[in-house]
């Protein structure tokens, strides 16, 4: 599992993240929601080792893969991007072709990745991650650039990958629908702190704090 204890991140005087305790178990999907600037990306980046923490502890038993909010395509073809990202070369061609077709990128396999559209690029970014076996997956807004169909594709690929590998997933989203669809547990961040947490149904129907109520009311308009 990934275990966080008294995690703090400060920029100068300003605390942008303050989490007393958070655990992500293997086989569990935890979805982090919250408005812009609430600290979602900061949390994932610290877990991925991109950012240093100001204080606290992060423990993880297993390999973590992380897909940033803006994943950069390499100057290679779509297929080469995936092959280049694979650690293990066993049956690599077949695995790669399967992933391309799951993400409906097969027809773009030989296209230069730099020329993909935003949504295609994001699907490729997920493909580069899931060519690998991992224990934990950190996904920062994996469907932010997606249309409805693309969102469905990504969600089903994430579900399938979790089923096959039994990995734990910590991801962020701005979509209530996605949180409902994927989450075992939802964490609501507000100014770097956990304002609410619970199962998607619990949280959506019965928020505990005033701020949580307001946030969820806005969400309900959206669904």
């Amino acid at each position: 599992m990934i275990k966080i204890l008294n995690l703090k991140k400060q920029y100068g005087e300003r605390t942008v993240l303050n989490i007393p305790e958070l655990t992500v178990n293997k086989g569990e999907t935890v979805v982090v929601v919250g408005p812009n600037g609430s600290g979602k990306s900061t949390l994932l980046r610290i877990l991925a080792g991109i950012l240093s923490k100001t204080d606290g502890e992060v423990l993880a038993d297993g390999e973590i893969y992380y897909m940033p909010q803006q994943s950069i395509p390499f100057s290679k073809s779509v297929k080469e991007n995936i092959l280049f990202s694979a650690k293990d070369s066993k049956e690599i061609e077949k695995r790669c072709d399967d992933i391309l077709s799951e993400l409906s990128l097969s027809h773009l396999a030989n296209k230069k990745a730099k020329k993909l559209s935003g949504g295609e690029c994001q699907r490729l970014a997920l493909g580069r991650i899931i060519i690998n076996q991992c224990d934990f997956l950190l996904l920062d807004e994996p469907t932010s650039a997606m249309d409805i169909e693309g969102t469905e594709i990504i969600e089903s690929v994430i579900k399938k990958y979790k089923q096959e590998t039994g990995c734990g997933i910590l991801m962020t989203t701005h979509s209530p629908k996605q949180a409902k669809n994927l989450a075992d547990r939802v964490i609501m961040l507000h100014e770097g702190q956990i304002a609410e947490q619970g199962s998607p149904d619990e949280l959506l129907s019965n928020p505990q704090t005033n701020w949580g109520k307001k946030f969820i009311d806005m969400w309900k308009i959206d669904t």
Binding site: A48, I50, Y66, P68
Partner: peptide, 11 residues
């Protein structure tokens, strides 16, 4: 910066 973040995420 962004490229390094991407590469680190892929271990």
């Amino acid at each position: 910066k962004k490229l390094i973040e991407t590469a680190k995420g892929l271990n």
